[in-house]
């Protein structure tokens, strides 16, 4: 997998997990958004999530999750795709728009004003949770019982 693909994979994942309101706010703060035509209007569906038997073995079907997808084309020709968790059609379209704009000359601007703040917010949320988990770390000691002496 080349660097450009790896990069796109990262931002699409970031957009999938982002809060819909955060994403809308960041996009709304940009100067003039490009015109885009839907190739696939936002569509709500289910994805079957798989797990592995014993955590490491063969796959099994765990259950479904809701996902919304959208594809669009900018007037300049770039095609963007959005696949986001949940049932928010606006979020799916916004994700597709960011994906398309990241393929244009505005990529640097989008990275700085949309993707970086979203990544920071997610990292801060994850770190805060991990820190709370760390505070519950327990040390257990076994006591010598009478019958063992």
């Amino acid at each position: 997998m080349n660097d450009a693909t790896e990069d796109r994979k990262i931002w699409m994942g970031l957009l999938a997990r982002a809060s819909a309101a955060d994403l809308a706010d960041r996009l709304g703060a940009l100067d003039r958004l490009p015109q885009a035509h839907d190739l696939r209007a936002p569509e709500i569906g289910g994805v079957m999530v798989r797990g592995r038997i014993g955590g490491t073995g063969q796959p099994f079907n765990l259950g479904e999750m809701t996902v919304t997808r959208c594809s669009l084309r900018l007037e300049s020709g770039e095609v963007g795709h959005g696949y986001v968790q949940g049932r928010d059609k606006t979020k799916a379209r916004n994700a597709a728009l960011v994906d398309a704009m990241m393929q244009t000359v505005r990529a640097g601007e989008i990275r700085a004003s949309v993707l970086a703040p979203l990544a920071e917010a997610q990292a801060a949320r994850d770190t805060a949770r991990a820190a709370k988990a760390a505070a519950t770390k327990a040390e257990f000691f076994t006591m010598v019982r009478g019958e063992d002496q």
Partner: peptide, 21 residues
């Protein structure tokens, strides 16, 4: 659930990578 079109199936989730609470 029965009304949702199936968009696909995920890769198996890797629970060894879990961010544990």
């Amino acid at each position: 659930r029965t009304t949702l079109p199936r968009l696909g199936a995920s890769k198996p989730v890797e629970t060894g990578e879990m961010a544990c609470d």
